[in-house]
């Protein structure tokens, strides 16, 4: 399986309750979130509503509020919450020895 997980950097390069972005050449940007309880989630950096950059939203619990029109997106599933409908692709991500790794295939699919 070596090579299937892409090392994108140290966990503590992502601010707690914040995010960092990873552009994919020729595709869409990926955003990696770190929550208040130190979980990591990766999604396409695109709100299902009108494409707002989720990376810039306020992270609370395991959710992010989109900066454009305040939809709430669940980080684990990418699903819009409440009455809103829509879903952002998610990407498998894990932390190993303090390094953040994202799944290559998942990243390609989400960014396509």
């Amino acid at each position: 399986m070596i090579g299937e997980w892409l090392d994108i950097g140290w966990l503590n390069e992502i601010p707690m309750r914040g995010s960092r972005t990873v552009p994919v050449a020729g595709g869409e940007e990926i955003v990696v979130f770190r929550t208040g309880d130190n979980r990591v989630f990766a999604l396409a950096n695109r709100c299902p509503h009108k494409g707002g950059p989720l990376s810039q939203g306020i992270v609370h619990g395991h959710h992010v509020a989109c900066p454009l029109h305040n939809w709430t997106i669940a980080l684990a599933t990418g699903e819009a919450q409440g009455a809103d409908r829509g879903c952002t692709p998610t990407i498998p991500v894990k932390v190993d020895g303090g390094r953040v790794l994202i799944c290559r295939a998942g990243a390609l699919k989400a960014a396509a």
């Binding site: 892409l6 994108i8 950097g9 390069e13 992502i14 601010p15 960092r20 972005t21 990873v22 552009p23 994919v24 050449a25 020729g26 595709g27 990926i30 990696v32 990243a107 390609l108 960014a111």
Partner: peptide, 11 residues
């Protein structure tokens, strides 16, 4: 860091 990407991804 708020203005920079964490990494680049060349598929």
């Amino acid at each position: 860091e708020q203005h920079a990407h964490m990494a680049q991804f060349q598929p």
